[in-house]
C-alpha cells in the first residue's frame, strides 16, 4: 500500500463522489461543484499514475503532469462558462415578467401541462 496506490484509490473515491454528486445534484451550482470534484478525482488518478511512472531521474512522469495542468485550466474555463450561464439565468429569472419556469423543452399537448418547479439544468 504505497503512496501512489493510496492516492490512486483516493482519486477513484473522489471520482465516485463526483459522479454521485452529479446524479443527485438538484441545482446547477451543485452540479458544477460535483463536476469539479469528478475532475479533481480524475486528475488525482492521473497523478498516481504519474508517480508510479517515476524513473530516469524524475520523481514523477512529467507527461501526465503537463496533461493535468492543461486539464485543470480547461476545467476552470468550463466552470467559468457554467457560472456565467448560471448568473445570467438567475438574472433573467429575477427580472419581472420572466417566463414561468417550465421544464426546458416542449410540454407536448399530449401530456397534461404539469409544470414542474423551475426545471433548472
Amino acid at each position: 500500500m504505497s503512496a501512489p496506490v493510496l492516492f490512486g484509490l483516493l482519486g477513484a473515491a473522489l471520482s465516485a463522489v463526483g459522479v454521485y454528486g452529479l446524479m443527485v445534484g438538484r441545482d446547477a451550482l451543485a452540479r458544477i461543484l460535483a463536476f469539479n470534484l469528478l475532475g479533481g478525482g480524475v486528475f488525482l488518478v492521473f497523478g498516481a499514475v504519474a508517480r508510479r511512472g517515476a524513473g530516469a531521474g524524475f520523481a514523477a512522469d512529467p507527461v501526465p503532469q503537463a496533461l493535468v495542468i492543461t486539464g485543470i485550466v480547461v476545467a476552470f474555463s468550463a466552470t467559468a462558462l457554467a457560472v456565467a450561464l448560471l448568473k445570467r439565468l438567475a438574472a433573467l429569472r429575477a427580472r419581472p415578467g420572466a417566463a414561468p419556469a417550465k421544464v426546458a423543452g416542449a410540454q407536448a399537448e399530449g401530456t397534461k401541462g404539469r409544470v414542474q418547479p423551475g426545471g433548472d439544468a
Partner: peptide
C-alpha cells in the same frame, strides 16, 4: 413515447 421522453429528459 412523449411521457417516456419527458421522464428521460429529467437530469436525474
Amino acid at each position: 413515447a412523449v411521457l417516456l421522453d419527458t421522464l428521460l429528459r429529467r437530469w436525474s
